[in-house]
Simulated scan of single mutants.
Amino acid sequence: MAAPRQVERPLSPHLQIYRFTITMAMSIIHRITGVGLYLGTVLLAWWLIAAATGPDAYAVFLGVAASWLGKLILFGFTWALIHHLLSGIRYFFWDEAKAFDLKSADAMSWLAAIGGLAFTVLVWVAAVVLRGVM
């Protein structure tokens, strides 16, 4: 009886083989912002509960939200929301089998990344100008 022939199988690619691309980064950031939004709903719940509880509880919330750390967290939450939205639109196009070529995928990824930051800054500038939030 002859010994079974050993088949040469390809090795699974690993991180040293792949070139890090913008689409890879955006996929990772999309997941991170999704978790951030999930955790950020605690802020929304705190705001609503404080508003429903009364002026003292709301004053505590406003004190925390108006601090530099509170503003940084709210800025991050705003960015996560806008970034996740734009990245989700990018995934929607891919679900419809549009913009799959490398150039379009990269362009949409950069557009979502830059657009997320730009729209976040615009929202905060509008908040400062219109309401004097800072």
Rank of each mutant, 00 (worst) to 15 (best):
W46R: 02
L122V: 08
L102W: 10
R5E: 09
T78F: 00
G116Q: 04
A107E: 04
L62C: 07
S27K: 15
T120C: 11
M1F: 10
H83S: 10
A57I: 03
F20K: 08
A3M: 11
Q16H: 14
Y38W: 02
L44A: 10
A113Q: 08
G54C: 00
A66C: 00
A80H: 00
S104K: 10
M108S: 14
A107F: 07
E8P: 00
S27Y: 14
A45Q: 01
I73V: 15
H14S: 10
A127D: 13
L81K: 01
L86R: 02
A2K: 13
A45C: 02
M134G: 14
W47S: 12
A2I: 11
A105E: 05
G115H: 12
L72Y: 02
S67A: 09
I89R: 04
L69R: 03
T53S: 01
Q16T: 15
V35S: 05
A45I: 10
D106F: 05
K103H: 11
A57L: 06
I29T: 14
L72T: 12
L15T: 09
M134T: 10
L72G: 07
E8C: 02
I22L: 12
Y58Q: 11
A97V: 08
G76Y: 08
T21L: 06
A51Y: 11
S87F: 12
W79L: 15
M134E: 12
I49Q: 04
T78E: 03
H30V: 02
R90F: 02
V128N: 09
V123N: 06
S109P: 02
R131E: 11
E8A: 15
V125K: 06
I32C: 06
E96F: 03
R9Q: 14
W47T: 02
L15S: 09
L44Q: 00
D95C: 06
V64Y: 14
S27H: 15
Y18H: 06
A3I: 06
M24Y: 12
W68G: 07
A113Y: 11
R19C: 00
P4V: 09
L111V: 07
Y38C: 08
S27V: 10
V60D: 05
R19Y: 01
W110R: 07
T41Q: 03
D101A: 07
V7P: 00
L11R: 10
D95K: 10
L62E: 11
S87M: 15
W47P: 00
I89A: 13
A50T: 04
F20H: 11
L69F: 05
F77S: 11
R9V: 14
L11H: 05
K98S: 09
S109H: 10
D101I: 03
Y91T: 09
I32T: 07
V7G: 00
V121N: 02
A80L: 01
W46S: 01
G76D: 07
I73S: 06
A2F: 13
